[in-house]
Design a protein around this nucleic acid. Structure first.
Lengths: 137, 137, 137, 137
DNA sequence: GTGGTCTAGACCACA
DNA sequence: GTGGTCTAGACCACT
């Protein structure tokens, strides 16, 4: 469910953050679901609890998950996107970097669009969202 | 021409790299054009020369610029994109991160497409490309 | 009457303590009034009885409530404030933190005074205090 | 300049945060000033660098300080308070707790007002702000 | 059981 | 020199 690649040069805690986000988007984790405990996930990923903790803390700051004292960590039930100018700028910046890299790899706009379609299919495909979400959410 | 933001958390040498790449794509720098010397650019950006040097070195390794001993640094005239599987994976990975972030900011696929169109317009608008870049783009 | 928010990061037992204190100050609970039993309150708040117990124990140590064996828990009839230097220091410290936070939120002294007035109105408005609490307040 | 009390039960990193905030409010640190490096401050406070780092990270998230890669940490030059409903609620909550405690210590509204005046004098007294701030800020 | 805090000590990327 | 990340291991408060 959660995957982390120690060879990847992006820090482990950020990989965990992205992994959790992805699982939620894909519908593998639903609002209210319990996340593995810090120690559990650390064991699963063979990483240090502090690293998992750091990831969970950041996710909580983003209001994506919430922790109930002594009970554990859960997917937030009331997440509402908040569009901030600063974040849009960051997003555009990140996207620009990707497009520049793509250009230098010989990829054109159509290639990018194709990749984006693939990625959206992977993240938001119907299978994940038809069945379970209806009853629970 | 080249811009760098010390508050941005992406390393300065990478910002320089991207800035050079962007200038080339936009046609502001053409194949064969001379780049400012390391010291010059360091002064312009109020940066450490080592930082500029590191950026130039990486750009050279990518065959995007080339150094002629004693003459200076120039935009490569023979850049040819090379698609490597490893890089494609990285690109997809980067794109996925962006899309996930976008999702959590409430942006939909259409919003992303709009931004991408904007960015392509910014990078590849006709004015910049009437001479040489037609085939690469 | 008693409210507790599991998402709030202040510990639940402290929230219970404050909730009881607030109810007494507001006059909703008068000296001699019976408090819900530990189990009852635990059920009401959907909390662990141990948590309620911990709160009641602390409240008893502060002489704010008292337990009569076999009869239940009651609001103390003889509470008398006791000013200790140590507690004054703590209070100032807490207040300083609030003021610093307020400053960074752009709130000025006047704003704080306004909020304090509101809070005092909420806590000590006349309706609640026509009978017994006149002298303590 | 920065003080931390290991006997205080509030976590050290939070004490550091408050200490920095206070120093800035008092005008002992001006916008653009360099903060001690993580290792330095850790040595001064005889605490662990990680603890200082955590404090600095949170302060950066609040936009109170900013770090320039490889150069160090500085007081932000462009801090602008942003009033969010959620934070106001938290502030009121904190204030309410203080007032309830004060009430149970026998302190009345006037006593609180007196303490607040004292604290504001301590934080914003003229000496700190007449001289230096005029020329630099 | 849960997460939060802290230490000691290591390695790395960056300027 | 700077901060960022990670580990191993400890203790604590809370439910």
């Amino acid at each position: 469910m959660f995957t982390v690649d120690p060879r990847n040069n992006s820090p482990i805690y950020k990989q965990i953050i992205n992994s959790v986000k992805e699982s939620i988007i894909k519908g593998m984790l639903l609002p209210g679901d319990k996340l593995p405990s810090v120690r559990e996930l650390a064991k699963i990923l063979t990483t240090n609890p502090n690293t998992v903790s750091k990831a969970y803390n950041e996710l909580e700051r983003m209001h994506i998950i919430e922790t109930l004292r002594g009970k554990g960590t859960f997917v937030a039930i009331d997440y509402t996107p908040k569009i901030e100018a600063k974040n849009i700028v960051k997003l555009k910046d990140g996207l620009k970097k990707v497009l520049i890299d793509a250009h230098y790899m010989g990829l054109k706009k159509d290639d990018i669009n194709k990749i984006i379609n693939e990625l959206y299919d992977e993240l938001l495909n119907d299978e994940n969202h038809n069945i379970t979400k209806g009853d629970i959410v």
